[in-house]
């Protein structure tokens, strides 16, 4: 019998992980975040580069980095199975050789480009 923890995590994945695309480090993703303001609910989009994936099972999350105003980098962590995220959209996939792209934090402008990966 599968462990109860694994069963519980599988259920959470089943429940919240519908239509989840394959996301890899180096991808540029668009995250549709549900934001509750008082009683109203709206969807905000956060688009950026996936620096890495952490966690396992239903606790898997991605770190997304985006350039904010005045060249200030903004990083947000999104749980993949969170009900607060409406959906993830993969805009672009890139060829990278590392699981964690922390070196991208030091790069700006032309050096911050990644080569697009067309297949897989």
């Amino acid at each position: 019998m599968a462990n109860l923890v694994q069963m519980l995590e599988a259920e959470q994945k089943e429940k919240f992980g519908q239509n989840l695309p394959q996301i890899d480090p180096g991808d540029t993703v668009r995250v549709h975040v549900r934001i509750v303001e008082g009683k109203r609910e709206r969807v905000q989009i956060f688009e950026g580069l996936v620096l890495g994936i952490s966690g396992s099972g239903s606790n898997r999350s991605i770190t997304v980095r985006r350039m904010g105003a005045h060249g200030v980098g903004v990083e947000r962590v999104f749980p993949l199975y969170s009900p607060r995220v409406d959906k993830f959209e993969v805009m672009r996939k890139a060829k990278v050789r590392r699981a964690k792209l922390y070196y991208m934090r030091e790069r700006t402008g032309k050096r911050a480009r990644l080569k697009e990966r067309l297949r897989r």
Partner: peptide, 10 residues
């Protein structure tokens, strides 16, 4: 064991 689950408000 331990894990995380999502509550009513996510």
């Amino acid at each position: 064991g331990m894990t995380q689950i999502y509550g009513q408000n996510g």
